[in-house]
């Protein structure tokens, strides 16, 4: 066998794992969809998504409390995390001397490696007592501490590393000469950031934010531990919520004992998967346009 034909043989062997890892996503969507069909055939999709009555024993499956719970917690976390992360990333990319940058970056990597259950522990030990004993009484509200605010705070800390490291990378794509041109015209460092770096990278920053959202949607354990898990549409940040991932994780045990319950939970999984995939596609699309412009 010549070396070239060996090349071709090995190449076709390598094709197998490559196909396996690329079609995994499709297989998951198909399997979850197939499992969700039972629940989807009971009521029109809109009714399922907009009904707020969740009583599995009576056969009532309304996803609105869970969808709203997910949106509240995720939105709060992102509102808290986006400005802090972007400003940190700007500092690291545009201001920090190399020595400080090289010390802080491993620390942020470390933050991204901490298991989510530890963040949950942190929430229970620090944030919940804080809300229960200080924040809520200060505002005259009675709260157990297990609420959207706690979930949002924990989740915000968890998305710091991904937002910071991705936006740092985006800022680094701006050529140094462009900053120098602005500085040479007498701009202050912040003006160079505002008028050159941010102007040039804002599609990338948007993509980073979308990716951060999709990461935050799926976070399960930490949020589940602090958010209270009450299936009601929340109306303030001091209400408990029940996000979609928590719904799936908490109820898999009894899902085989109630008719349609398994299908209902798998539809929740499909919903979550769909949201994450759509957000990821949006981010990829923005990044693709960005690359084309370059």
């Amino acid at each position: 066998m010549t070396r070239y034909s060996r090349d071709r043989v090995i190449s076709s062997v390598l094709f197998v794992p490559a196909v396996f890892s690329s079609i995994l996503l499709f297989v998951m969507v198909i399997v979850l969809f197939w499992k969700s069909e039972a629940i989807l055939s009971t009521k029109p999709l809109v009714d399922l998504l907009l009904s707020s009555s969740w009583r599995p024993v009576a056969g009532n499956f309304g996803y609105l409390p869970f969808i709203m719970g997910t949106i509240w917690v995720t939105a709060l976390a992102m509102i808290l995390a986006i400005p802090i992360s972007l400003l940190s990333a700007i500092y690291l990319s545009e201001y920090a001397p190399p020595r400080i940058r090289d010390t802080i970056q491993p620390v942020i990597d470390l933050l991204s490696g901490i298991p989510s259950v530890i963040f949950g522990l942190f929430g229970i030990l620090l944030i919940i007592p804080l809300i229960k004993n200080s924040v809520a009484p200060l505002l005259g509200i009675n709260s157990s501490g297990y609420c959207i605010l706690a979930g949002g705070l924990v989740l915000a800390i968890m998305v710091f590393p991904i937002l910071i490291s991705l936006s740092f990378e985006v800022f680094q794509t701006v050529p140094r000469e462009m900053r120098e041109a602005a500085l040479g015209l007498g701009a202050t460092n912040w003006e160079a950031v505002k008028h050159v770096v941010l102007k040039k990278t804002y599609p990338g920053v948007i993509a980073v934010i979308i990716l951060g959202f999709s990461r935050a949607f799926g976070e399960t354990m930490a949020v589940l531990m602090v958010v209270g898990n009450v299936a009601r549409v929340p109306s303030s940040v001091f209400d408990p919520a029940y996000p979609l991932p928590a719904l799936i994780a908490n109820n898999y045990g009894e899902m085989m004992s109630i008719p349609l319950y398994d299908s209902a939970l798998m539809f929740a999984a499909l919903l979550l998967l769909a949201i994450v995939v759509i957000f990821n596609l949006m981010a990829q699309y923005v990044l693709m346009i960005l690359r084309k412009v370059e």
């Binding site: 990716l211 799926g218 399960t220 991932p245 085989m256 994450v276 990821n280 990829q284």
Partner: peptide, 26 residues
């Protein structure tokens, strides 16, 4: 396009993978 597919798959919450394998187990 394979890279984009893998990036999307990497962004899927691990819970979903758990649910998927659970269905296979059932």
């Amino acid at each position: 396009s394979t890279r984009i597919l893998l990036d999307i798959a990497a962004g899927i919450p691990s819970l979903i993978y758990g649910a998927f394998v659970f269905l296979i187990m059932v």
